[in-house]
Every structure is written in C-alpha cells, then in structure tokens.
C-alpha cells in the first residue's frame, strides 16, 4: 500500500491554491479535469478505508445501491452551473468540493462497483451518457451565460466537451456490448 502516499501527494497538490486556481481558470478543466481527478483520488483511496472500516461499509452499503445513489447525487450536484459558481466564490463550498468529490463520490463508487450487478453498471453508464448529452445541449445552445464566473465561449467549449465525452461513452458501451457477444459465442 505504498502507492497510497502518491495518491495523497496528488490530492494535496491539486488543492494547492496556485494549482487549483490554474485549473479553475478554465471552465472545462474545472469541471472535466479537476473534478474528475478528485473522484479518481477517492477511487484510489477507497481500499485503505475499506480495510480500516470494513464494518462501516458492510452496514451502510451492503448491496452497493446506497453507494451508487450517493455517487449519483453528488455528481449531479456538481454538474450544476450554480454549484461551480459557488465553489469559486465561497471558500467553504470550495472546501466542500475538495472533500465531497473524493469521499462522497469516489469512495462509494469503488465500494459499490464490485457489489452491484452488470445491469446496474450499464444503467449507470447510460444514465451519465444521457446526462452528458443533456448538459452538452444546454451549454452549447443556451443563449445566456449560466455561470457568473465564466464567459460564454467557456460555456460552449464545455458543452462540446460534454458531447464528445458522451460519444466516447457510447463507443465504450458499443465496444463492451460487441466483445461480450464475441466472448459468449
């Protein structure tokens, strides 16, 4: 478990004010890279927590569904333009972002992923694909600025980022569908 120190180093590095400011200066990097990295950090930290508090996870997340729900709620919250604005304006919301994304999204996702069935997994990917298409549509074609802190061009860029990610997720779904088929023949 030596790798854990790298993860903690990365976590601290991303929270350093100059690093955080740089990433937050571009809307799409704020949402698609910084936030994703925090979720990944939680994902990588999860095994340590699972080992330390096995009872806790067994009790609260026996079949994985509560964890997935928590993950979905936290992720949906952070795709709202308003919450990004608040994270930039209020230091305690920023702090909440730093904590909630790893520990309320990344950790529960890792803990649940092995427990839930394949259809829940696929359902989750499809749900996020649909969410991303909707967000892409919203950000590209919204005539108004949705965030006080970012320009319209940032918003359009983010919209295309959402759509492209959705395309990648669709390719992934198609790929796993095809290879599953191939393996079952």
């Amino acid at each position: 478990m030596k790798g854990i120190y790298y993860v903690i180093t990365l976590y601290i590095f991303l929270m350093l004010p100059p690093v955080a400011n740089l990433m937050e200066s571009v809307m799409i990097i704020h949402m698609h890279m910084q936030m994703t990295l925090f979720v990944i950090i939680g994902f990588l930290l999860a095994p340590v927590l699972q080992k330390k508090f096995p009872r806790f996870f067994e009790e609260w997340n026996p079949n994985g569904i509560p964890g997935i729900l928590l993950f979905v709620i936290v992720m949906f919250y952070w795709t709202l333009p308003r919450s990004m604005d608040e994270a930039l304006n209020l230091w305690y919301i920023e702090l909440f972002k730093f904590i909630s994304l790893p520990f309320l999204a990344g950790v529960p996702l890792r803990d649940s992923w092995k427990k839930v069935s394949a259809s829940v997994k696929n359902g989750l990917i499809i749900l996020f694909t649909l969410l991303f298409i909707a967000m892409g549509w919203l950000y590209i074609w919204s005539p108004n600025q949705l965030c006080n802190n970012y320009l319209l061009i940032d918003q359009i860029t983010l919209g295309w980022g959402f759509l492209l990610t959705a395309v990648c997720m669709i390719s992934y779904i198609a790929y796993s569908y095809i290879t599953d088929l191939a393996e079952n023949i």
Binding site: I28, T157, G161, L164, T165, S171
Partner: peptide
C-alpha cells in the same frame, strides 16, 4: 485515447 484527445482539443 479518444476521451483524452477530445479533452485536449476541444478548448
């Protein structure tokens, strides 16, 4: 790879 490329080029 495609995801990384989209992220990098979209801006």
């Amino acid at each position: 790879m495609l995801t990384l490329v989209s992220m990098a080029y979209v801006i």
